[in-house]
Design a protein around this nucleic acid. Structure first.
Lengths: 225, 225
DNA sequence: GGCCTGTAGATTGTATACGGTTTGGTTCGG
DNA sequence: CCGAACCAAACCGTATACAATCTACAGGCC
């Protein structure tokens, strides 16, 4: 009907769109996702929408109540702790592997991302919302890039899914708290040890990075569920 | 058209059917899964079949090549190692948590499962295929029950998915190797420490259980991918 | 006045239909 | 005899249509 390029398939387009909207908080926790409404807004039928929602459900970003439709998942504090703990272990594992396999190019790439984040962070503190969005994208890129170096596909995939579940809540912390003030130092410490090749220490710092973030979040908004 | 009970929805039925067939080896690695064929065999249309396949794909049990359809995933030796390693960490985590929260009823339930497995294992060694299938079911039940005690929903869900990815290969080990001779002693050791409440030790034994199984498998069939 | 019931609207679940791409075989040319 | 191009069948991706269920509101009964 409209897109002739099947390169990004329709379900893929819808999936990415919905995922991004959930991760950036446009679709907040608990919001119902009506199939026809989404279909119309993207000029597709409900079929690819349903496929996208099915994927999102099995990745834990939405929930389905039979005959009542999909809604954005709302995690309780306990569930956030649960997922953050998993994320800690998996990211530590990936970070250790990544440090052992790193190349000088990897170090440079990560450093470039951190520098860009510093620049965007300064703008973001000045109230530039676009810069804040870009900062978040770079933040994701830093962690994604780091554990991608491990070369472990299944681990990366699982880790991405797990991080995605926490992303909307990190966004809350970014808006309400001082994540922008705390995170850069933690990232720099990670990169320093990564450059030195202290695999175990990188793993420990990554886990700590997530744990601290989770604790700060739950202190800011203890009763989200 | 046929089922009036919507309690298990059609996609759910198809999903369970396909998952079971993949886990028990009926649909071997690499086998193409044709939508219409599956739909006809279950007396449903292709729509719920597609939804089931979408779920299976995001759980890593099947792969989709665009315009060429779905096929059962075929893991390389490296991927099996990767996933088994993840499984080790997650199961150790769940096992530790479970041991701390255990009740006497949990101990009894797990022991009953092991006793049943011993009985079925003896029959299975005699060539009873049905008993072997039942043994596998009890094996899954033992591990599922164990980490369910942890009470961590997200962890259990992730762990189930991860174990499922390995299940077809464990089945191979069961058929070709001496899993039936090795596993019971490992399970008993786990249960003994679980009863005593040695959380860390239970975690260590669970990880070791998976690692050994993975090593035996890769020695039996080093080039599966 | 509050609660239950019945009906209308909306939304999901499923089936069917159609268009496009891939695949395998056959035929033509070298 | 072998290889490449073409044609037909099969299959996937998407849209549309229909059936079943749920929600909400209105009306009547206790």
């Amino acid at each position: 009907m409209q897109l002739q390029r099947s390169v990004p398939s329709l379900p893929e387009v819808v999936y990415s769109h919905l995922r991004d909207r959930i991760l950036d908080g446009t679709y907040a926790a608990g919001v119902p996702l009506r199939q026809e409404e989404i279909a119309k807004s993207l000029n597709v039928s409900r079929v690819p929408v349903r496929e996208a929602l099915t994927r999102l459900e099995s990745e834990g970003l939405v929930v389905l109540r039979p005959r009542r439709g999909y809604a954005v998942v709302a995690l309780s504090a306990d569930e956030i702790r649960d997922i953050a703990d998993i994320c800690e272990r998996l990211e530590a594992l990936a970070a250790i592997e990544a440090t052992r396999r790193r190349t000088p190019a990897d170090v440079s790439a990560l450093e470039a991302i951190l520098n860009e984040m510093d620049r965007l962070g300064a703008l973001g503190r000045g109230g530039d919302q676009a810069a804040l969005a870009a900062w978040v994208a770079q933040h994701r890129a830093f962690h994604t890039r780091l554990f991608a170096i491990s070369g472990r596909k299944s681990l990366c995939r699982l880790l991405s899914q797990t991080r995605d579940q926490l992303e909307p809540y990190i966004r809350i912390e970014l808006n309400l708290g001082d994540y922008l003030a705390q995170a850069p130092a933690e990232h720099r410490r990670i990169l320093d040890q990564f450059r030195l090749g202290s695999a175990e220490e990188v793993g420990r710092l990554c886990a700590e990075h997530i744990r601290k973030s989770c604790e700060r979040l739950l202190q800011l908004a203890p009763n989200h569920g």
